[in-house]
Design a protein around this nucleic acid. Structure first.
Lengths: 146, 146
DNA sequence: GCGTTCTAGTTGTATAGTACAACTTGATCC
DNA sequence: GGATCAAGTTGTACTATACAACTAGAACGC
């Protein structure tokens, strides 16, 4: 096996390990916000609000799944729905102040965890690693091969 | 923000994206073998058999979860249990021939997906990326920060 | 050697996340 | 203005998971 082939093997194995661990630990680290909820809130913040359908499309989730997630987030007071005056089928979702705060708090705690784990890394390696990950995820059609 | 700090941000973001995608696509790519089942079978092959308790400890899963997964895998004929003659509480799990075949087949298909996605990468980058991932996952206490 | 305690595994129960299908409501298009 | 399309909700089912209670077997202490 060439160096490149065995590197691909390693990437596959290590990505799988990471995905499994992430899945296992997501709920425990932030019981107040699942990985999916966190991602959805993040998207709402980035986009300054969007529709449930956009979330479903962007994250390859069923609209019913998003509908229930959104209902839970609204219930928890983290988002609010505003009826689109142009199209009454549409509800535009926005973060509430509480949602913004929780999101910031979870982001901080996640960031701290990553920072700690990467504390020993030389800056140069961090930058390269980050670039590789971006490139990997940016690949069109990338579905994670989970 | 320093280059290192923004690299950590990027790593966090991209790892999160990966974990989410992996979760979303795992079941669809290999309906015959969930990510967890795949991982467990892989461990059994690597270790040439082990106990359910070992799997639970190694993958931070509850023993009841492993018990049910194992039951399903046995039901599917992919593994078999052998009572430990030394300790009758213990069942040593082994891949069956069918299990070995399915595992090999899923591994091939996963490998092909990764290979395709990484096809454009220079060998040098593959090797570095693989090394970074190993280093990241090897960190003691690493739980994925999902 | 026999009770206490430990370990391996199973089963009952509950929860979260997910998908698919059927439905409701509103918009759009001949 | 009826057919069709789009956004979202709800019914139902399944999987993965955890925790707690339990069973069966092993080991330890005296």
């Amino acid at each position: 096996m060439s160096a490149a082939e065995s590197a691909v093997e390693t990437i596959q194995r290590e990505m799988t390990i990471f995905a499994r661990r992430a899945r296992a630990s997501a709920g425990r680290m932030h019981p107040e916000l699942s990985l999916v909820s966190y991602t959805l809130l993040g998207h709402l913040e980035e986009q300054s609000g969007c529709r449930a359908t956009d979330l479903a499309a962007h994250y390859a989730l069923d609209k019913s799944t998003v509908s229930r997630q959104v209902a839970a987030l609204e219930q928890a007071g983290l988002i609010e729905r505003r009826l689109d005056p142009e199209d009454h089928r549409v509800q535009v979702l926005h973060l509430t102040e509480a949602g913004r705060e929780i999101l910031a708090q979870v982001t901080r705690s996640r960031r701290a965890a990553f920072r700690e784990r990467l504390a020993d890394w030389p800056a140069e390696d961090l930058v390269r690693f980050a670039a590789y990950l971006e490139r990997y995820n940016a690949d069109p059609g990338a579905k994670g091969s989970g």
